[in-house]
């Protein structure tokens, strides 16, 4: 899932300080699962900013709603009536949702309430960890199912570098060395010889370096 975290309330409040009526729009997708922008978080944020504004003698009319997903046009079409007379929309979705809103509601001020951090999964309740570097060309079959692109601080493809000690990365003693994990796993699987192959330089054009990427499945596209 996409993992995001809420910006400080005061920072969000600042973005809409000159607005009188605002829609706080949550998203029931990834950000609900990572407890950053679901229905509950949307209500809490709206409530907090409403109180803040009242205390500043600049009352805010805040309404809340949570879309099924903000990253599908179908789901934001339905909120036209909620958006009609607000000065701004505070989106509690990832960066994708914010952009979909800005695109659809051309005359509205749309601001992000979250910082979109990474894609990953949960470790325990309340803790999420980055797992995938979105490099566009998966190499997990060569690295024992552990991604060095994102889990190695240097994205090294022929690791581990000289900064790996006691299983930890030089960057932080709390960070596992991805290449130690890869080594351990490949050894357990009896596939250490695979690590002796020199991994060639990567085609980063399949990553963000090639501009915004598209994924297409023509068989499911609907011809009009």
């Amino acid at each position: 899932m996409i993992v995001a975290q809420q910006k400080p309330v005061s920072e969000i409040a600042q973005m809409i300080s000159d607005c009188k009526k605002v829609l706080f729009l949550g998203c029931a997708g990834c950000v609900t699962v990572c407890l950053a922008g679901g229905e509950k978080e949307t209500d809490v944020l709206a409530s907090a900013i409403r109180i803040k504004r009242t205390l500043e003698s600049n009352p805010l009319e805040a309404t809340t709603f949570t879309c099924t997903r903000q990253c599908d046009p179908e789901y934001i079409v339905g909120i036209d009536n909620l958006v009609k007379d607000v000065d701004a929309i505070v989106s509690l979705a990832c960066g994708v949702g914010v952009q979909y809103l800005a695109e659809r509601f051309k005359d509205k001020w749309v601001v992000p309430a979250l910082d979109t951090k990474f894609i990953g999964g949960s470790v325990v309740h309340g803790l999420w960890e980055e797992k995938c570097g979105l490099c566009g060309e998966c190499i997990l079959h060569r690295t024992g199912g552990i991604c060095p692109i994102i889990r190695c601080s240097k994205s090294i493809l022929n690791g581990p570098c000289g900064g790996s000690q006691h299983g930890k990365c030089e960057v932080d003693k709390d960070v596992d060395c991805a290449w130690q994990l890869i080594y351990d796993r490949m050894r357990a699987l009896g596939k250490l010889d695979k690590l002796m192959e020199i991994q060639p330089i990567k085609d980063w054009s399949k990553s963000r370096d090639g501009g915004p990427r598209k994924a297409i499945r023509e068989d499911v596209m609907i011809d009009e």
Partner: peptide
């Protein structure tokens, strides 16, 4: 950081 290429490469 860059790390387009690693030391081996």
């Amino acid at each position: 950081n860059v790390y387009d290429v690693d030391s081996m490469q």
